[in-house]
Amino acid sequence: MLTASIVAMISFLSQASSDPAIWRVEPDTCLVSESETRCFMRVSITLLSLSVGKVCIIANKQVLTCMYEGQKSVTVDITLTSDTTLHLNDTNGKRLAEHTLVFNKLLDADFSQRTRLPWSLF
């Protein structure tokens, strides 16, 4: 009973940490110091469950790149000055998915969530 509960909890946590959407966009947050107004980031985009032909990735009404049938992943370089939404459109312009890239200041959310080094039990 206890084992089943632990397995169920781990399974739930594992599912919760994965992206159920049709694409994965990582990283999706760019943090800069207070004095900076632009943030450069290299975004890795992976299609998870899409069986259509050519799709394009669009931001601020500009096509950043397109992916062709069979292509599973692509890398996009982008410079943010504010929150920016990436759209995944098919060739007919139909929106298939979207994901917001967050631009933030380090002052609001500085490095290191954890108070200790990870993997430091021993």
């Binding site: 990283p27 947050t29 760019c30 959310a109 500085d110 969530q113």
Partner: peptide
């Protein structure tokens, strides 16, 4: 480096929740 890039609900500063792993 001045910039920090991360993924929300995964490794960004300010995220809350569990982090479980085994090595």
């Amino acid at each position: 480096s001045a910039n920090v890039v991360c993924t929300r609900n995964k490794d960004c500063p300010g995220d809350t929740g569990w982090e479980l792993g085994v090595a």
